[in-house]
Design a protein around this nucleic acid. Structure first.
Length: 353
DNA sequence: AAGCCGTGGGG
DNA sequence: TCCCCAAGGCT
């Protein structure tokens, strides 16, 4: 049987989370805030997003403000949040919306915008524009797999889960409150129907949950085994000039950490670098101090970086090949998390001199 | 269409 | 410690 939407909505009316991008009950939220939060929340926890969301709204109160900003500024503001293609697409999308004059209010039109896929289009359509669609994210996949006791493993089961999830809002109650219904599904998944130790005892949909009836709710959704994570090795050089600036370069627009800044270094290879070979790639002869190793885990590989630091005497910061970068304040750079770790290690060393 | 794309926190 | 996971999209 299909779960009763009114049971979920009643629960939501009492237990809904208060979040910065959420409007008060009965109020229409600003589509800009909904869109901004949805992009930030892609594969990212609510806790991590909140501070970034507030900061973006402060710097860019409207989509027109964001569209008018230099991409460099947007990347710097995004630095640390990860998945940097999101920031580039965010900026491109803002420009497009500024051209259009407003956010489109249908799933099909939203799908045409950069950074907006099947999930985000439906989330914005439901939350900002009251369209009766069900956005299927990880929460909704988990809830749905349990409700219907779907044991086929992800990601192959994704199309089936999407079809089943679309049945959830077919009642009159759900159709009347598309925004609340979508967010109620999120809150259910985030607070009760959690990946581990779900709180079935207090779940408004427990009576309708086949997974619970079968005693397998907590084991769903099943997932295909993951690939082993390879390790890559590199060496980076943190070079400070007499004014305290660091030698920094910008990575290519596409690919890993695209468009973000870094300290110059070697390629990242499958085997560790011989120290002598690595030092031969340094921007200046030295002397370099070994500061230690940074270990950073990306989605699909582990990175181990040997870090070297050096400080230049006054008047010696010219004549370095531009491919190594330019001397800049680290606060003016868009440093991803891994490079902030490198910086912290080098600064700890430079300060003891 | 499977691989690529970050980061921080919790158990 | 290590593994898992979080309001996915792009190619």
């Amino acid at each position: 049987m299909t779960p009763d939407a009114s049971d979920l909505l009643r629960w939501y009316d009492t237990h809904r989370r208060t979040l910065p991008w959420r409007s008060l009950p009965g109020e229409r939220p600003d589509p800009y805030g909904v869109w901004l939060s949805e992009i930030m929340l892609q594969q990212t926890t609510v806790k991590a997003v909140i501070a970034y969301y507030e900061r973006f709204l402060t710097h860019y109160p409207t989509v027109q403000d964001l569209a008018a900003a230099p991409q460099e500024d947007v990347l710097r503001l995004w630095a640390g949040l990860g998945y940097y293609a999101r920031a580039r697409n965010l900026h491109a999308c803002a420009k497009r919306v500024a051209e259009l004059g407003q956010f489109p209010d249908t799933v099909d039109e939203l799908l045409k915008l950069p950074g907006i896929g099947a999930y985000t289009a439906r989330a914005i359509a439901a939350i900002a524009f009251g369209r009766p669609v069900v956005p299927v994210d990880g929460n909704v996949e988990r809830v749905t797999s349990r409700l219907f006791a779907i044991e086929d493993p992800l990601p192959a089961s994704r199309p089936l889960l999407a079809r089943q999830a679309a049945l959830l809002n077919q009642s009159k109650d759900a159709q009347q409150r598309p925004s609340d219904f979508a967010q109620a599904l999120f809150d259910l998944g985030a607070t009760l129907c959690t990946p581990r130790n779900p709180s079935c005892l207090t779940c408004p949909w427990r009576p309708a949950c086949q997974g619970h009836a079968d005693g397998i709710a907590a084991t769903l959704p099943r997932k295909a085994p993951k690939q082993a994570k390879p390790t890559r090795y590199g060496t980076h050089f943190v070079l400070q000039d007499a004014s305290g600036h660091m030698l920094i370069r910008t990575r290519p627009e596409k690919g890993l950490l695209g468009g973000m800044d870094e300290f110059p270094g070697t390629d990242w290879l499958a085997t560790p670098w011989d120290e002598k070979d690595a030092l031969a790639m340094a921007p200046v002869l030295g002397p370099w101090t070994a500061c230690g190793e940074v270990i950073h885990v990306f989605t699909h590989f582990t990175l181990r970086l040997m870090i070297y630091a050096a400080a230049l005497p006054a008047g010696h910061n010219a004549g370095i090949d531009p491919s190594f970068g330019t001397f800049r304040s680290t606060e003016r750079a868009a440093l991803p998390g891994v490079m902030k770790k490198c910086l912290a290690l080098a600064v700890a060393d430079l300060e003891t001199r």
